[in-house]
Design a protein around this nucleic acid. Structure first.
Lengths: 193, 193
DNA sequence: GCGGTACTTTGTCGATCGTTCCAGATAGCG
DNA sequence: CGCTATCTGGAACGATCGACAAAGTACCGC
């Protein structure tokens, strides 16, 4: 080994995340990424190989930071309705959190990149599935305990909830009205019976 | 006056729509648009002024073609639950219709353009609002007739349904499974009580 | 402290970006 | 039929795109 890397790789991915979230994939140039990370383009290419490579790294960090904690929360063993509400409220907070207009990378990638890059599509499917699965396990047990409706299968309810979450992200991008989004989320929660 | 315009302006916007829907705004080049419309770039700039101008024209055509009929259907005076189901089924059909991966321009614009172009943001808000309003009128009357739940205000139910519709578009982009999307839509409809 | 190696920086590559301009073609008017 | 205003396609613009190579720099093992 020789000279050590001077910059924090994670910090660079973190900085790049903000850019991709606010400008999208195609709307972000290597120059934008250089400025945001403080790295020369050479360093970026050495570390990530390409713009796509950096984007994938950003997507993975995003999943690790936002999707994984969500799944963990759902699997924490607490009351089903309570944790699901917590997840929804947390999502609304994310959406309306600051005025920096940082849209959800998952939804953005779904619209812009899923059809162009199979690696992105795989990650999106994987993320969605693990979220659906965590919800399914939670809902199925709650159904057994008679805590929520059995009119619909746990599978359908789980998929529906994820759909609602994605919908909230879109609505929030159009009109970031926290009170309204919260009420919409409450309607979705009420579907659990 | 002298020479008249030779090409069909609407047809050009129509052709451009497919490109923007499959590649997004930033991912579409003027070359793509020239090829799709069969026009030279000079003609495009003469007719629309800029890439943004053409995009706005495309967005307006999209609203006229998809959003307006939806509103008309909701205002047709038929049974609330039936027309709402029809709207949702129609949306699922759109999403899974062909294998050409044409994503919803409204959702795409919400994610990619709403934060960058105020004219786009205005149109998105206007479209969403007229859809919500049509749903509100329909739901409020159905509530009076005792056909749907009064646990939630018609306003919240309307917003929730639009949110679900947007969510279906996102989920469809990740995994265009018509049967699954239909079941998720049915769960949303069941929320009407 | 020295050689070697990995990392960083800088400059630049050809391609392509959105846009503009121009020369030729064409249709309406006198 | 000639004139001319307008439209057309394509050439060309400067800027910027993603990507890369070479040169400089700092660190490790010896």
């Amino acid at each position: 080994m020789a000279r050590t890397r001077e910059f924090d790789l994670d910090a660079a991915v973190d900085a790049a995340m903000d850019v991709f979230r606010s400008k999208g994939y195609e709307g972000t140039s290597m120059r934008d990424l250089s400025e945001a990370t403080g790295l020369g383009s050479g360093s970026i290419y050495a570390a990530f190989g390409s713009k796509d490579g950096l984007y994938l790294a950003v997507l993975d960090l995003y999943r690790q930071r936002y999707a994984t904690p969500m799944v963990d929360l759902l699997r924490s063993g607490n009351d089903a309705r309570a944790v699901i509400r917590e997840v929804f409220i947390g999502a609304v907070d994310d959406i309306t959190g600051d005025g920096r207009h940082l849209s959800c990378l998952i939804v953005g990638a779904s619209m812009e990149r899923a059809h162009q890059d199979v690696r992105v599509a795989e990650r999106l499917r994987s993320t969605t599935q693990s979220l659906e699965l965590a919800l399914y396990d939670l809902l199925a047990e709650a159904q057994l305990r008679g805590q929520i409706t059995t009119d619909r299968s746990a599978t359908d309810l789980a998929g529906f909830l994820v759909t609602s979450l994605q919908g909230l992200r879109v609505m929030g991008a159009i009109n970031p009205d926290r009170a309204a989004l919260t009420r919409y989320a409450e309607v979705a929660l009420a579907c659990l019976g």
